[in-house]
Amino acid sequence: MFDNITLGQYYPAQSVVHALDPRMKICLLVLSIVAIFLAGNLLAFVPVMAFLALACKMSRVPVKLLIRGLKPLRFILVFTFLLNLFFLQGETPLLNLGFAVIKKEALILSVHYALRLVLLVLFSSLLTLTTAPVTLTDGLERLLSPLRVIHFPAHEMAMMMTIALRFIPTLLEEADKIMKAQTARGADFESGNLIKRAKAMVPLLVPLFVSAFRRAGDLAMAMEARCYHGGEGRTRLRVLKMAKNDYLALGAMGLLIACVVLLSRVY
């Protein structure tokens, strides 16, 4: 039963952050990445973290949910942290483990890199948590539409994303059903080694692809019958409009970048 699956991790709530224009939110994400990379020392991360904390508070997204975005990355995080810790160069020995010596400079840099990655993920999570996928797609389409001049298919890309969002729950439900049906015929998706398991997926994947293609054909026909003929001459039900809050948020981001630059210089 995948009935209630929410795609991505959108957390529906009424908040100023949710209400921001998606175009602005995407720009803010890009700018926050700039800020993170401009941070030249650990001290410069403090305002970035403060900004994130404030944004999270204003968005009413539970902190736990935000942190959960890091879970899939925990191995990479630990791995790169350890790798950096042992292999980065430095002068001041801090701790001798016998097989390796940990240097102070290496420790600081490792923490720096790890923090950078964590913040990058948290800022992107905040965007997807506070912006419905459709809205996000809308924002992306508008932002990228000037690129049409160089034949970048902004509209087509957005349409593809919308359709994907619409059909993922349907296909998940279908996958569940096919899996059950094959299980009823004695298929085993759970045991055996990797190769055996990969092979066991064939009876699931073939029907799923066949069905996806059938759906795609049907949908193309239905879209054509409803006069779809690309992005040209198309109007939109929803028009995005920047409001006061959007500019305020942009101002706050500018301030943040200034702080980061300043703190990076001072140290």
Binding site: P133, R215, D218, A222, A225, C227, H229, G233, R234, R236
Partner: peptide, 30 residues
Amino acid sequence: MVFQNPDNQLVATIVREDVAFGLENIGVPT
């Protein structure tokens, strides 16, 4: 035209936006 499979002819993720799909295609003012 309305087709056979109810799952394969709705395009948008929200009902009212799906109803708008045809209107958007033919350029009805917002």
